[in-house]
Design a protein around this nucleic acid. Structure first.
Lengths: 347, 347
DNA sequence: ACACCGATTGTAAGCGCTTACAATCGAGGG
DNA sequence: CCCTCGATTGTAAGCGCTTACAATCGGTGT
């Protein structure tokens, strides 16, 4: 005999009483509860997870699905750990375990997710790297499992998401540059299929318009998250009749290549070309002059996502309202020396 | 009625037959199996995880416990993603799910682990950041759950571990520097309580001895994984009667601070001070001159750990021998320009 | 024609826990 | 002193799946 039955026999009570005592059920004599807890402690007993889930119909755990991208492993990860930290803290406070579920880029992320969902392995899900069109969202919507996505998609609106405030970032960046006298502002956008690229690009257009600036397709540079697009960008910006005087980077690392190319051409970042990076990255911290960029708390992003999830989960106590949450976490500007007043030196 | 029973009724067979068909049991008529599979597919059926685990006594999942260090979140993560990728691939090929279990630095990692173990939430475990003395290892040894640690500990030897080949790295580094004429070689070691620090330091002493060099406590610098210990290191090395001419860094980022200080003193890395870094890092890729360092495949580390775990799990098919595995994954030297022949300029 | 056998399927007993419902007991009310 | 009621505990029916064991059936050997 094992498990709860053993404990029960040991104490001369029924398994029901043990179960109640362990689960904080109020219908147990306090003295009895103490005896049970003591014995459980002494025998190192912990309820079997599977049996519990089966009987209760819930797992007390939520999954955070991430995708492992062989190519950019060294980068995305760095992003997630902070986020996971925030999530974990909030979920743990509500008695939920966070399971990070890594999906290899090579396998179909839809099938991967489906397995966990249809098997009832988790009570809730958080998705990362949302696509513009993402079947996973439809899947989750049609199943009845609570979920939150990190990033918006175009898959309708009846669900919760948390995203970065790309619009706010872009508004601040453009306004800052305009104040400094810039009228021709270039931009880099991610070249992958994640939705944030489209959002970032749209925010760029919107904010140019807001300041009465013309949009020029030639000033938009798709980049990957690596430092070596500097040459084409710098040359593309400057070697034209109406060169741009500033650029906003989606990936801050791009600054490295740009700095390099500027140096080769005898130009100085901040004077001959103003540069504003988006999300602050570890590997760029040491670049001089420091890149003006935007910073955020990854932990906050995580806690926001966790809370948005909890808001949909059936539970008795909750420190915040329930329902659908759609919000953008703000980033703050970290001024550097990579931007400055437009340089009046004429080509 | 739901689950397997529904499927069974739908098909006019017993639940036992459905279960057998779904689980690849050979005692099922092939035609029947096809019908079952087709129906399951059609109805989007997948066996309930909890019920399955309860009945079988196994979960088909393994946990990878990592610790979230608020301070170094931005760094360690980057390490894990590659590792997770390797693990996931191997485990998935054996029908196991990998669950990454994040433990907040603030909570007791022993209790955290214990919960998952005693609740039977996973069939196997992989531990990261092993301490010299690590109660978790004793816990796992006394429970009967298969496990592997990333990193050695002093907790006996009857268990599997995978570690980096610190000894090999140090041997190569010292030998390289000795060949270049260096006789006074400094070292930085991590200042935390993980076991690898002690191992690295010991390997340093051993290899100095091997080449007949004296060990000097003053040339050992504890550092954290950040760039700003450069001043004290450079000054500590050079402002002494018998300055060191080379240094081996545990954390490659330390090179950034060192370069900076060297520059301030009008000195050049590779000429006035030879520098060899340990594990190659993203954020140092752009430092000039490039740091000579050691590189490894994080994926390989992950696959090695996963295989070592599988070697202990009860299973019928396995592509490699079972038993305890203790191995070190090698790193390869990436020559840069940060080291060179000892500079004969006399103080 | 009969016992026997392998292939296939069904029956039913759990796996360890939760929980609706019944049972018990002592106290307070009439 | 009997009845009702609240507090506490026990009983037992599942939760959805696996699997040992029994049952069925068509074919074989004699």
């Amino acid at each position: 005999m094992r498990g709860i039955a053993r404990l029960a026999r040991e104490l001369g009570v029924s398994t029901a009483t043990v179960s109640r005592a362990l689960n904080g059920n109020p219908n147990v004599n306090e003295a009895t509860r103490q005896k049970v807890l003591e014995a459980a402690q002494r025998l190192g007993y912990a309820a079997n997870q599977a049996a519990r889930s089966l009987a209760q119909g819930v797992t007390h755990s939520v999954g955070f699905m991430i995708e492992l991208d062989q190519e950019s492993t060294t980068s995305t990860d760095y992003f997630f750990m902070g986020v996971v930290e925030g999530m974990q803290a909030v979920l743990a406070a509500h008695g939920l375990d966070l399971l990070v579920l890594p999906c290899a880029k090579s396998q179909d992320n839809f099938t991967f997710l489906q397995r966990f969902v249809s098997r009832g392995a988790v009570d809730g899900l958080i998705l990362a790297e949302t696509r513009r069109i993402d079947r996973r969202i439809d899947l989750l919507k049609s199943s009845d499992i609570p979920f939150v996505t990190l990033g918006r998609s175009d898959s309708g609106s009846g669900y919760s998401w948390i995203d970065l405030d790309f619009e706010g970032v872009m508004a601040t960046a453009v306004e800052r540059l305009v104040r400094l006298g810039h009228r021709r502002i270039a931009v880099t956008v991610p070249s992958n299929d994640a939705n944030y690229g489209a959002i970032f690009a749209q925010a760029y257009r919107d904010n140019l318009a807001r300041h009465g600036l013309d949009f020029d397709e030639a000033l938009v540079f798709p980049t990957r998250r690596r430092e070596d697009d500097g040459d084409s960008i710098v040359d593309g910006i400057l070697d034209r009749p109406d060169p741009a005087t500033a650029i906003i980077l989606f990936y801050e690392v791009t600054a490295i290549g740009i700095y390099r190319r500027l140096a080769e051409r005898g130009l100085k970042p901040g004077r001959d070309l103003s540069i504003i990076g988006f999300r602050r990255e570890e590997s760029v911290r040491f670049l001089m002059p420091q890149v003006t960029c935007f910073q955020m708390s990854l932990q906050d992003l995580g806690t926001a996502a966790a809370r948005a999830l909890l808001a949909q989960m059936p539970m008795t106590v909750r420190a915040f309202p329930s329902g659908i949450v759609q919000s953008r976490v703000p980033l703050s500007l970290v001024p550097g020396e990579s931007d400055g007043p437009v340089c009046l030196r004429e080509g």
